[in-house]
Design a protein around this nucleic acid. Structure first.
Lengths: 213, 213
DNA sequence: GCGGGCATCGCATGAACATGCGATGCAGGA
DNA sequence: TCCTGCATCGCATGTTCATGCGATGCCCGC
């Protein structure tokens, strides 16, 4: 949308690779303005405050403090800074950790420079660019959770009570919320426990806890 | 990678929209072969087994059974079938539910047909196409989880107790596991509650529950 | 109209939990 | 040495849960 050039920095210790990217970004007519290359997380954290860019491309495997921690600290200082991971690694846990740390996107180094440039614009415009297989892994995270089970044949009322139990409400609150007596709540809870073969609220939350959050 | 045409179906009750897409996909030279349009989930579930496509584009808001359930059932019958959501809705919970149901990607109807065609190929090749803002919402799901916090200044012992509490163990079990008395466990739990400003095991699990799973 | 399923309410008991107060022994820093 | 933080143990009280047993009123299909 915004046609002005986008100021970015690279946090990357592989100098040849970084230089090549920088060169590409700074070609005449490019929408990207690569302002600096920082070879370490520490250097980036010192230099970035002097002239914050709009987007940072961050490698994960950095000397000293790794890219994940770097992103977490940058996001703490500049929540509006858009961080994209740019790495060779595509293991699940690295991807998830990076996203949790605050990364908005995750690109593999094998991505052609032109696509990286596109991704930077997408990210600046509020998107989350990801290499296709990375996206699939992220989506796979959701596939693993099997909560959409309308089975268990709970009655509507029982399901309501269950939901409130999961929210951590006391019987007293549940009774108030549903406008019934506390003993009625007890009865429903009992039925729920019977049907789900569990014996305590703790087990419920461990089984169903915090789903749609 | 595979240059052969990709057989797909549309599950979509907005007939004009579906017809227009079908027309576009079936233009000469297209990589997509749109074989059918099903106006309802029920119809799709009956017809698809007769001639399963590689990819299904599914609307969420369908008459009768909604698209989420449709995807869940299709994936159960044909785990290798690639389902892409194609909808106007972009609420968080719909996105997450769709992905949980088994969708591999999530596109908004405002996406240009050519990009939808690209997305179909990406999906067939193992990627997960998502409209940029959808991707950001998915990524936002990870941002919301704040697990990488080693803060809270819990002592090692308190952390141990906390972990066992989260596992759902009774004080008695915790005492046994740690080789201390139940009253000691009580003391530690109290300290943990104080430091984390909570008042019950339920709150703990709601806050920290099932993280690394 | 009778049997079932469901929602509602009640009582009772024992277990588990939350929390207030107090105490000892040990280590390491001021 | 004294102070502080930590881990340990103890007791007491009140609350919340889990669960067993029983009961009524409503609606629906056979």
């Amino acid at each position: 949308m915004n046609p002005s050039t986008i100021p970015i920095v690279l946090i990357e210790d592989n100098e040849p690779y970084a230089r090549a990217l920088e060169k590409f970004f700074n070609l005449p007519g490019s929408a990207i303005d690569c302002r600096a290359i920082y070879g370490s997380s520490e250097q980036a954290l010192v230099e970035i405050p002097k002239n914050p860019p709009a987007v940072a491309l961050v490698d994960i495997n950095l000397p000293g403090q790794n890219g994940m921690e770097c992103i977490a600290q940058l996001k703490e200082l500049y929540p509006q800074l858009v961080c994209l991971v740019l790495t060779m690694y595509e293991e699940d846990h690295l991807i998830f950790d990076a996203l949790r740390a605050g990364a908005c996107g995750y690109l593999l180094k094998r991505t052609p420079p032109a696509e990286i440039a596109d991704a930077i614009q997408v990210a600046r415009d509020g998107g989350s660019p990801m290499s296709p297989h990375i996206a699939r892994q992220v989506v796979g995270f959701f596939h693993r959770s099997p909560p959409p089970k309308p089975d268990h044949s709970l009655t509507a009322r029982e399901q309501q009570v269950l939901d409130l139990l999961i929210d951590g409400k006391a019987y007293k609150e549940i009774a108030h919320d549903l406008g019934v007596s506390i003993d009625t709540v007890r009865t429903h809870v009992r039925k729920v426990y019977d049907k789900l073969h569990i014996h305590s609220r703790t087990e419920i939350i461990l089984k169903f806890g915090k789903k749609g959050r």
